[in-house]
Amino acid sequence: MSSLFQNAYYLGINFNAILYGAELVIYGLTIQALFRHRTQWTRTDKFYMVFSTAILCLITIYMSTEAVFGQEMWIVNADFPGGAAGWFVENVNVWYQTLGTASSVLRNILTDALLIYRVYVIWTDVRVIAFPCVLYIASIALGILELYLSGKPNAHFFVGKAMQLGTAYWASTISLNIITTSVICGRLIYLGRAIEVARNVKGRGMAALRYTGTVSMVVESALPYSMAGLAFLVSYGIGSDISIMFGAFYGMFSCISPQLIIMRIVTGTAWTRDRMAETMSALELQDVEGRAGVHATTIASEVTSTMDDKSIQRTV
């Protein structure tokens, strides 16, 4: 274990604490929004409350195990033969580290499921989520195998078969993140442009920014989650010691990004199936009306031209 790895681990723990505070704030705002209309709760509201609480509990387990591991390595066992590096090698597969890894895998399963559902909501087409679903099933299987191999005696998350299988697991789940992010961003860009063109006046299209603007695109597509995942996958795949820090970012955003999506849903600022259906119907109607208007204008022009020709002939 190099000095770079230890520094990256230390920074990762500190960033975990900062981002965990942000997660608590977002969770509090989400629950507050839900309780404002608690007399009108639907099954969906109850589901999102349970979902938000579940990922908060899982991220708490993850960051707690990382903090405890760091404390044991640098403070409690500072006099261990071989120092921090020696203690790390001997205890890398300690039970609470396996628990932290299990919480990460389960959290990814929940977050990826939410992203696939959001793709369906925004596209309203089952065919779009077919390939992401295949990747999702593969990532679950690989995640379970990764937990088994990394939790075995004398196993090492960053060495040997555990690392090879870990690379396959992270590649599948992060590829899923990138695909869902891309198709959601693509759909929102299309909708934003279509709404702007249909309204034909830039100022009148500003109300659509609530659903198709930059903030909406970043949150709805879980862009920070995918970007952190890509950085982690590349560094982990090449065996870089800094991967542990990017892994901390990825772990925290796997909780913050879905929490932001849920907050937008419960506050009424996110896309829903009903809103998407209404928007597409309105765009189709305006498109038909626009084509009808162009057709009527063309006919009127032809009639006017014909009348002008006849007038000229009579005059002559």
Rank of each mutant, 00 (worst) to 15 (best):
45 D>L: 07
120 Y>W: 15
268 G>V: 14
96 Y>A: 00
251 G>M: 14
221 S>N: 05
83 G>F: 01
92 V>R: 11
203 G>H: 07
96 Y>M: 09
230 L>E: 04
132 P>F: 01
295 H>Y: 13
77 N>F: 09
224 P>W: 07
59 I>L: 07
33 A>L: 07
299 I>H: 01
108 N>W: 14
79 D>H: 04
286 Q>H: 12
7 N>H: 12
55 I>R: 03
97 Q>Y: 10
87 W>Q: 02
273 R>N: 12
253 F>A: 03
298 T>W: 12
221 S>W: 01
240 S>H: 13
90 E>I: 06
133 C>A: 12
168 A>P: 07
229 G>M: 04
315 T>A: 11
217 M>Q: 10
104 S>V: 15
12 G>N: 02
88 F>P: 03
177 N>P: 12
9 Y>M: 09
156 H>T: 05
305 S>C: 05
14 N>A: 12
178 I>F: 14
106 L>P: 02
171 A>D: 09
305 S>H: 01
246 F>T: 14
21 G>W: 04
189 I>S: 01
8 A>L: 10
166 G>H: 02
264 R>C: 14
41 W>G: 02
231 A>H: 06
12 G>S: 06
315 T>F: 14
83 G>D: 00
94 V>T: 12
199 R>K: 10
62 Y>N: 07
98 T>W: 09
60 T>E: 01
129 I>H: 03
155 A>M: 07
315 T>V: 10
82 G>V: 10
62 Y>M: 08
302 E>M: 14
52 S>D: 09
40 Q>D: 13
31 I>L: 15
262 I>M: 06
236 Y>A: 01
192 G>Y: 03
115 L>P: 11
98 T>F: 08
127 R>N: 10
132 P>V: 05
10 Y>M: 10
78 A>D: 08
89 V>S: 12
281 S>Y: 06
199 R>T: 10
225 Y>G: 02
16 N>C: 10
131 F>K: 05
253 F>S: 05
3 S>R: 04
214 T>V: 14
282 A>S: 13
138 A>M: 13
241 D>G: 15
216 S>I: 03
47 F>D: 03
35 F>A: 03
182 S>R: 08
159 V>P: 04
210 R>F: 05
253 F>W: 15
298 T>E: 05
146 E>H: 13
135 L>E: 03
65 T>D: 03
289 E>Y: 00
98 T>M: 06
79 D>Y: 04
190 Y>D: 00
109 I>R: 00
195 I>C: 13
201 V>N: 11
